[in-house]
C-alpha cells in the first residue's frame, strides 16, 4: 500500500529557480523512505510540500499533485491544520518550544482543543515512552524543555509529533546536530516506529541513508534521478550520477 502518490510535482520559490521539477514517486506505508542527495537538491522543499509547511515560505508557484488518502493536498480546499496533525515533522535542529517539557509534548493536542487533563497526561506519557524518554524525564515534566540535552531535545521533538498519533513522520536531517550516541538512539527508534508509521527521512549523510533506507530516492538539483529499494540504490545504482554520488565521487 502506498501512503502518498506524487505526480509531476514542481515547486518554484521567489528566486525563480525550479527547486523541484516534475517529481513522480510513491511512498510506501510502514517503511522508511530515504531522500538523499547533495545540498540544495530539494529534499527539504519536498518534505515541506507534503505537509504544506511551505505555505510559510516564499513559494511562487506549485504544480502537480500530491495524493494523500485520495485527495490532492495541494488543493486550496485542503484543511492544512488537519493535514499537519496527520503528517508530523522533525527538523534538523531540535527546536523545543519555549514551554515546559510536558507542554511541548501536549502542544499539538492542546491546539486541537483537548483540555481533559487525564487524556493529556496519558498521551504525554505514551508519547514519551515511544520516544524512550519517559524513564529519563518522568520526574522533570514541568521543567523547561531547554533544560535537557540536545539528544533528549530531539527525541522530545519526536515525542511531540508522536503525541498527535500521526500517520506519517517526516524527519529532515534529524541527527545533524547530535553526537553518535544520540544519533544511534534516534536511528534505533525509527526502526521500531516504522512498524506503525510511514517514515520519510532526509539523512544528513550517505552512511545514514544506506543504513536506514527501505526505499531510497536520489534528488539532484530539484530532480528525482532515481528511486528504488534501499538495497538496489546503494549496491546497484542504475544512473551514472547516482553511482558517482553513492561511491563518493560527487558533491
Amino acid at each position: 500500500m502506498n501512503k502518498f502518490r506524487i505526480e509531476d510535482l514542481s515547486v518554484r520559490y521567489l528566486d525563480n529557480n525550479e527547486s523541484l521539477r516534475k517529481i513522480n514517486m510513491e511512498i510506501e506505508e510502514n517503511a522508511i523512505t530515504v531522500l538523499f542527495g547533495p545540498a540544495n537538491g530539494g529534499k527539504s522543499t519536498f518534505l515541506r510540500t507534503l505537509n504544506r509547511l511551505n505555505d510559510l515560505a516564499d513559494v511562487k508557484e506549485m504544480s502537480g499533485k500530491v495524493i494523500f488518502h485520495e485527495d490532492n493536498i495541494l488543493e486550496k480546499t485542503t484543511d492544512v491544520i488537519e493535514l499537519r496533525r496527520r503528517i508530523g515533522m522533525v527538523f534538523s535542529r531540535p527546536v523545543p518550544l519555549p514551554l515546559s517539557i510536558y507542554e511541548n509534548v501536549a502542544y499539538g493536542l492542546i491546539m486541537e482543543g483537548e483540555h481533559d487533563k487525564k487524556k493529556l497526561d496519558n498521551a504525554v506519557e505514551n508519547a514519551l515512552r515511544k520516544a524512550v524518554l519517559w524513564d529519563e524525564l518522568y520526574d522533570r515534566l514541568q521543567d523547561s524543555a531547554y533544560a535537557i540535552s540536545g539528544g533528549q531535545q530531539q527525541r522530545l521533538c519526536l515525542a511531540r509529533v508522536l503525541a498527535l498519533e500521526p500517520e506519517v513522520i517526516m524527519l529532515d536531517e534529524p541527527t545533524s546536530a547530535l553526537d553518535p550516541v544520540a544519533t544511534a538512539k534516534i536511528e534505533e527508534l525509527l526502526n521500531q516506529l516504522k512498524a506503525t508509521y510511514t517514515i520519510i527521512l532526509a539523512p544528513h549523510n550517505i552512511q545514514q541513508a544506506a543504513r536506514m533506507a527501505d526505499y531510497a530516492a536520489f534528488f539532484l538539483m530539484g530532480e528525482l534521478i532515481e528511486f528504488s529499494s534501499g538495497k538496489e540504490m546503494f549496491l546497484n545504482p542504475r544512473d551514472r550520477r547516482t553511482q558517482e554520488y553513492v561511491s563518493g565521487r560527487y558533491g
Binding site: 491544520i81 491546539m111 486541537e112
Partner: peptide
C-alpha cells in the same frame, strides 16, 4: 523557528 514548529504541529496562525 518557533512559528514553523508550532505550525507543523497543527496550530493555526492565531494560536
Amino acid at each position: 523557528s518557533f512559528r514553523v514548529v508550532s505550525t507543523s504541529l497543527g496550530a493555526s496562525r492565531w494560536q
